[in-house]
Write a protein that binds this DNA or RNA. Structure first.
Length: 590
RNA sequence: GGGGACGUAGUUCAGCUGGUUAGAACGCAUGCCUGUCACGCAUGAGGUCGCGGGUUCGAGUCCCGUCGUCCCCGCCA
């Protein structure tokens, strides 16, 4: 830029700068050529200011301006002047002033952009990702990544205040069984051996506790080679947190205060403490382990009287949902709910309406009025209410597990909330879901798998259940949920070797196999491991929620497509045969 | 792996039951224009209808396959 130095940002010029000589630099957002007078909107990361090229001020600047096009990069030297009243533009922050150019410097030319940069112009994601460096200039991405930066600063400040050290952990590490598919990195020095990129720094953070660091956190990239979704990228960021000698409620408090600080960036006041909801209750009432609690529509598990379930040919365990004052639900609306219930896995659906002339329900015919009345009374129905009922078939072979019934109830609840307009925007409904089961039964493999991970501690009172009834054992594991989205999860870890051995037994892992898989961690736990526990927060999801984006790609500078491709640099890509030779790798024919 | 939606000009889209030269808006180029700010006016350029095959006298349109993007299920903490 020669001897020139930028003195101001475009977006900060105000009437108070009037008559000052300034040098601004940026991109040409728009050009309006009136012939002998040219207006340029000059844009940088702070905003837009209007530059006037007037041949009466500078012939040379005006002549150069005739060649200038959109997205050219310019330096402009000129004088800030207040605009005449009738030429003020109230739509932009700098609209009361403009820069009268004395000279302009074309720092770079630019091809016509591949798509319009106006905020609000609709553009296919494909084009945006292909030309991400242009897309990033748009106000939306500038805003989102700025927010992300400020939020990251808040995390570091907050964790530091609470005694947490940010410590880096390796990206080139070892593949661990269980969990997601690993991204593998071949070793040049040991052919046939591979590093794995971490799915999370789980093991390392536990080792840092064993190593005596007491409190650790990291804003860290994690990698999982699984199919993608709107809220899942192959590489994503976690706020990883671990503490020694943990009290669960102290950890919750630290995280709640962190959320408070983050949302303060949006001028949102967060209510603390967050409610805590046992997993079983979440499943019963909301049919989800990540419930949106910003509205009612609570389900209740009931046992149908034997006579009734017999006549209906359903299993006795069922669920009901009382919709207060929704008695106006039409037959066709109820049919739609029924379709949804069936589609989401319920075998049986019915309802009871309270009408002027009494109870109205297809059940009356099937099981008689008194039975229906009993149900209505049990549900606490009053006039104008409607009661939805779902259940499962009676026959043993296709008995749907209670879990599936819960899932159906959750799907119905969300759909109803959507239709009834119960989901308010601008609400921030945090909830801790606690007391997750230790184990989940894998129906395919007919064995228990760890619901969180195999180093999660059971609740003290559930220790005996490891032997007697593993399915009923609850873990000291928890998720943080915001507006029905899981934004974090963690647990208090196991530090007692004997309990760990019991868990391995349930998982069907012999001592030998466990050694083989997790040897170094088990050894570390035997070297004097303090009690420890922590949490990992899904950073991309949190930022997306804060930014009001429904897709985490909008808060990631260079994201990948749903098929894990980087459209900008065209990765993944083939490599030279020499590179493969060095790694001792041959590509198999398809 | 499965399901759904989409793919036409640089961009966003229209194109009906198959029918003559594939359109619009914005953008772009050229010219005119001294108070515009989504400047205006005039003129113009710009198309492998994703790709391959098939049906047909004739395909952007119908069929099959394939590739890509998005969303969902499976998968994944």
């Amino acid at each position: 830029m020669g001897d020139w130095k930028r003195t101001h940002y475009c977006g900060e010029l105000r009437p108070s700068h009037a008559r000052q000589k300034v040098f601004v630099a940026g991109w040409v957002d728009r050009r309006r050529d009136l012939g002998n007078l040219i207006f340029l909107d000059l844009r940088d990361h702070t905003g837009i200011v209007q530059v006037v090229l007037n041949p009466e001020i500078s012939r040379e600047a005006h002549d150069k301006g005739e060649q200038v096009r959109g997205e050219y990069v310019l330096g402009v030297e000129g004088e800030v002047v207040s605009r005449a009243k009738h030429t003020v533009n109230p739509q932009i922050a700098t609209g009361e002033v403009e820069v009268q150019a004395q000279s302009i410097l074309v720092l770079n030319e630019a091809k016509t952009p591949p798509f319009p940069l106006d905020d609000g112009a609709r553009t296919s994601e494909e084009a945006r990702l292909r030309y991400r460096y242009v897309d990033l200039r748009r106000a939306r991405m500038q805003r989102n990544l700025r927010l992300r930066h400020q939020a990251s600063l808040a995390v570091r400040e907050h964790m530091n205040e609470h005694g947490f050290l940010e410590i880096e952990t390796p990206f080139l590490t070892r593949s661990t069984p269980e969990g997601a598919r690993d991204y593998l990195v071949p070793s040049r020095l040991r052919h046939g051996h591979f590093y794995a990129l971490p799915q999370s720094p789980q093991l390392f953070k536990q080792l840092l506790m064993v190593g005596g660091f007491d409190r650790y956190f990291q804003i860290v990239r994690c990698f999982r080679d699984e199919d993608l979704r709107a809220d899942r990228q192959p590489e994503f960021t976690q706020i990883d947190v671990e503490m020694a000698f943990p009290q669960r409620d102290e950890l919750f408090d630290i995280i709640e205060r962190l959320m408070e600080k983050l949302f303060a960036l949006l001028d949102v006041k967060v209510e603390r403490p967050f409610p805590r909801l046992p997993y079983d209750e979440a499943m019963e009432r909301y049919g989800s382990d990540k419930p949106h609690i910003g509205f009612g529509l609570d389900w209740k598990r009931i046992a149908l009287p034997e006579a009734m379930s017999g006549k209906l040919n359903t299993a006795p365990s069922a669920k009901m949902l009382r919709l207060a004052e929704q008695g106006h639900f039409s037959r066709s609306q109820l049919d739609k709910v029924q379709d949804l219930a069936k589609a989401s896995g319920a075998d049986w659906f019915s309802y009871i309406k309270t009408a002027d002339k009494g109870l109205q329900s297809p059940l009356v015919k099937a099981v008689g009025e008194p039975a229906v009345e009993t149900l209505a009374r049990e549900a606490g129905m009053t006039s104008g209410d409607i009661l939805l009922l779902i259940g499962t078939k009676a026959d043993g072979a296709s008995v749907m597990k209670a879990r599936h019934l819960d899932e159906a109830s959750g799907a119905i609840r969300l759909e109803l909330a959507e239709r009834l307009g119960l989901i308010k925007s601008g609400g921030w409904n945090f909830v801790w879901v606690v007391d997750f089961p230790m184990f989940e039964h894998n129906e395919k493999e007919k064995r228990f798998v760890a619901m969180h991970h195999p180093f999660t501690s059971p609740r003290e009172e559930d220790l005996p259940k490891l032997e007697t009834d593993p399915a009923a054992a609850k873990a000291r594991a928890y998720d943080l949920v915001l507006n029905g989205q899981e934004i974090g999860g963690g647990s208090i870890r196991m530090h007692r070797r004997d309990v760990q051995a019991g868990v391995f037994r349930v998982l069907g892992l012999t001592e030998e196999k466990a050694r083989e898989r997790f040897g170094f961690l088990l050894e570390a736990l035997e070297s004097g491991a303090p009690p420890h526990g922590g949490i990992a927060l899904g950073w991309d999801r949190i930022i997306a929620l804060m930014a009001g984006e429904s897709n985490i790609r909008e808060v990631i500078a260079f994201p990948k497509t749903a098929s894990a491709v980087d459209l900008m640099c065209d990765a993944p890509a083939p490599v030279d045969p020499e590179q493969l030779d060095e790694l001792g790798i041959k590509i198999a024919d398809p």
